[in-house]
């Protein structure tokens, strides 16, 4: 990711309007997209392996699933969707030069990330308290593996949002591609949770 003293024409158009211009426009940079697409493929494999094991014993998986707190899962989905929305608005605000607003929005998104961690910690605490640990059965092994791997992504995501904040601090050094790339990572964290929520909490 290099310094951009001169913006390429399409990025300049995005900066001017606040939204991507019609036609071809890569938000962020290719390096971040390669990472994100690789992560999507890896998580996709996890999801399919989960389904294969689930298909072998659907009733056991369903009876284990009933011990999860659907309300907590849905609440965490709303929290991450809200954080993604705030980040999307922050990117648009940076493009139009509204840095104060963008800063507030990124802090809001980071706050949502922390709230997600708190809700998840409470959920894990309750589950472990009821004896549903990693070794309880295959369902809970996947529950901790998938939510744990995702939790790690949330933690990294909060650091990435701090990078977003740092990037917009100094207008002379601001790189729009870095701002967009950090936002892309955070949206991926949101997207993965949507699938995890459907598979672990809601599916019947």
């Amino acid at each position: 990711m290099t310094h951009e003293p001169k913006l390429e024409p399409r990025r300049r158009a995005a900066v001017k309007s606040g939204t991507p211009p019609p036609g071809c426009y890569l938000s962020g940079d290719t390096g971040m997209w390669v990472f994100v697409l690789g992560d999507l493929v890896i998580f996709g494999v996890y999801f399919i392996v989960f389904m294969v094991l689930r298909a072998g014993d659907p009733r056991s998986f369903l009876s284990s699933q009933r011990h999860l707190d659907l309300t907590m899962g849905a609440l965490n989905t709303l929290v991450l969707l809200t954080s993604s929305w705030l980040v999307a608005l922050a990117v648009q605000s940076v493009r139009t030069g509204e840095i104060r607003r963008a800063t507030g929005l990124v802090y809001g998104a980071g706050g949502c990330g922390l709230l997600f961690l708190l809700i998840k910690a409470e959920e894990w605490h309750t589950m472990i308290g009821h004896g549903f640990t990693l070794t309880h059965n295959d369902f809970f092994m996947f529950y901790y593996m998938l939510t744990g791997a995702h939790l790690l992504h949330v933690l990294i995501g909060i650091l990435v949002l701090a990078l977003f904040r740092g990037e917009i601090r100094d207008p002379r050094l601001r790189r729009m591609s870095v701002v967009e790339a950090t936002a892309t990572y955070w949206h991926m964290v949101d997207l993965l949770w949507v699938v995890i929520f459907a598979l672990l909490y809601v599916m019947r």
Binding site: C24, S27, A183, H187, D190, V194
Partner: peptide, 24 residues
Amino acid sequence: ILALAAIKVRCIIHYFMEVRTAPE
């Protein structure tokens, strides 16, 4: 549930990640 999840994921990719206007 899966249909709703697919719609949500596509919306996140297209609008939040701005893939709607990305290269093919």
